[in-house]
Design a protein around this nucleic acid. Structure first.
Lengths: 335, 335
DNA sequence: ATGAAAGCGCTAACAT
DNA sequence: ATGTTAGCGCTTTCAT
């Protein structure tokens, strides 16, 4: 556990010269550099980032705050973020809020304490508290996936309204009338936007009176329960729309347990694809989001902020979803 | 961005008193405490962990190094680790090595720089380099899931040999003879142990001459390719054994693409279950590992080390796998 | 129950 | 191209 002074002494130079070698922060002659490098190797010296961060006000760490680390949509975002951030020399703290505002606020506190240089945030709810807090502490924030009312920040997200609209149009074009929307929590932008797309498509198809929206959590359990509830409605739905991947899986399980065949008895469409690594026979018709790309782009925006670029304008990157048509949405209804 | 001195000044006390209030590290009178708490609130003061860590030699951070953040087996471990660690006041760095020794070594360097208090490591390979390096820097390490030759460390893992043995016995009891093992990289303990269990079961059933082991990566692609390769073997296999969840999915895809019906044409068993949140109809017969529990237990071992308990003896926690029998392993063969 | 002084390991700012 | 000095914000140690 040697420090920079030990290295300096052994190399016969001053500690600041060692610092310059470590950080490539200024010219050092080849002879001196070699002496320093040798001393570092001999001592097994590893620089202390707490000390350098304290002095320089840069910790070279970022944080990615996601709402569900078990959801592949978010782990793919994480890979995108990490690939870009680590290439730029940053280490990333991954934080999981479990869709809880309390945990999100707790993490924003911890991240300020840890002096992270920037935060990539998937907001758990519509409260602006965490972002405000990070703002007060002068930590740049880039939002991913979800926007927050009242908050103007760089953001990378998909066009949820449009994706939902297209999915529902697919169904109405086939003759479906009673399409039930099974969505996430009210107040979460992706949830609300997908509902909005659903409403637009339903209205456009003249199915105003058939609209039915059920809100729950972005979980499999919620999808299961709401699907059971949807089935008890009159007239019976001929199609269900799950607002994220876990909701859709819950829906499919509920239909299996209710002995409803998909798509023969009922059609299903959903948001977010499951990674091909995890599914043998992709079956669900979905609006897929480019999660890995979203992570990369968001990290890029944050790095721009940190390097002092684009200080003024707020940048909003809106990616489109890809509609992938598979068996679950079925064929045109007869009659 | 006020500091501890600003708070002290406003509260009319010394900075060390503020420190005592923040850390509950010593008695402070109720009146003084209130003055300090009020001053902290008024200034929006947040303690700087870089500074406190530098001085106290404790960063209150741990690291969990896993080999594949997209694999639900590891994200479940991550949740277990986080639940225990954060309850004890630690923040966790999650690091993803992509099964690469180079990335693992790189991370161990970064983690020493960041002065983490302890590391939970799923080793990417059989090289002891990373563990040695962390040792040299006096950072306690607990291994998860995989052991490393030459290294004696606290570890939490499952009994892979036994789980594999039982899975294969299930098949041999049904009359299967040509069972091909599709495993991960040689040198990774879980991969090798599962092969060992396979060999023991095959030998015990007198199927010595039918043994066939294919090694690859713990990925879906690898499972796919090795399954195709296995099918070209003579005599044709009647059962395939995937050494982890992604390998098994690759196997199932290869069988689908080869028009082989599971289990009618060929049986499949695997290691690691896929989380129920991601699968509609669980189909695969597996040896499931209690991943969340493994994370919790491993974090517990590490916390014990950090609190100075159990300094001497090395502790090895070996959990058993649960054999879950489903359709993919089929029924007794006729004839 | 509270405080003063010193210093953790590094780098910014200013020399030379 | 290299060095000196000072100090980042906190806690340890020693006082009182």
């Amino acid at each position: 556990m040697s420090n920079i002074n030990d290295v300096a002494k052994l190399a016969g130079v001053s500690s600041i010269t060692v610092s310059r070698v470590i950080n490539n922060s200024s010219y050092v002659s080849e002879t001196t550099r070699k002496k320093v490098v040798d001393a570092i190797a001999e001592l097994g010296y590893v620089p202390n980032k707490l000390a350098s961060g304290l002095r320089s006000k840069r910790s070279d760490t970022l944080a990615l705050v996601i709402t569900d680390i078990t959801n592949p949509f978010f782990t793919l975002i994480a890979r995108g973020v990490e690939d870009v951030a680590s290439a730029a020399g940053y280490t990333v703290f991954f934080c999981n809020t479990d869709e809880s505002e309390e945990k999100e606020i707790n993490y924003s506190n911890i991240l300020v304490q840890q002096q992270v240089d920037g935060v990539l945030l998937v907001p758990a709810c519509s409260s602006p508290k965490s972002v405000r807090f990070l703002d007060q502490n002068k930590i740049p924030v880039v939002l991913i996936d979800r926007s927050v009312p009242e908050i103007k920040k760089d953001i990378v997200r998909c066009n949820s309204e449009e994706g939902a609209y297209e999915l529902v149009k697919l169904l109405t074009a086939q003759g479906h009338k009673k399409i039930v929307m099974i969505s996430g929590p009210k107040g979460v932008s992706t949830s609300d936007d997908r509902v909005a797309g659903y409403i637009r498509a339903m209205n456009e198809a003249g199915l105003d009176s058939y609209k039915k929206i059920l809100n729950g959590a972005f979980t499999q359990n919620s999808g299961y329960e709401l699907a059971i509830q949807a089935l008890s409605d009159e007239p019976q739905p001929t199609a269900l729309f799950g607002a994220n991947n876990f909701l859709s899986i819950g829906i499919l399980k509920a239909l299996r347990d209710s002995s409803k065949k998909v798509p023969d008895d009922i059609a299903v469409v959903g948001f977010d694809d499951l990674p091909i690594t995890m599914v043998v026979n992709p079956f669900l018709t979905v609006a897929a989001q480019p999660a890995y790309e979203m992570g990369k782009k968001a990290a890029g925006l944050l790095l721009d902020r940190l390097s002092g670029k684009s200080v003024d304008e707020i940048r909003e990157i809106i990616l489109s979803t890809e509609i992938i048509k598979r068996q679950s949405s079925g064929n045109p209804l007869i009659g």
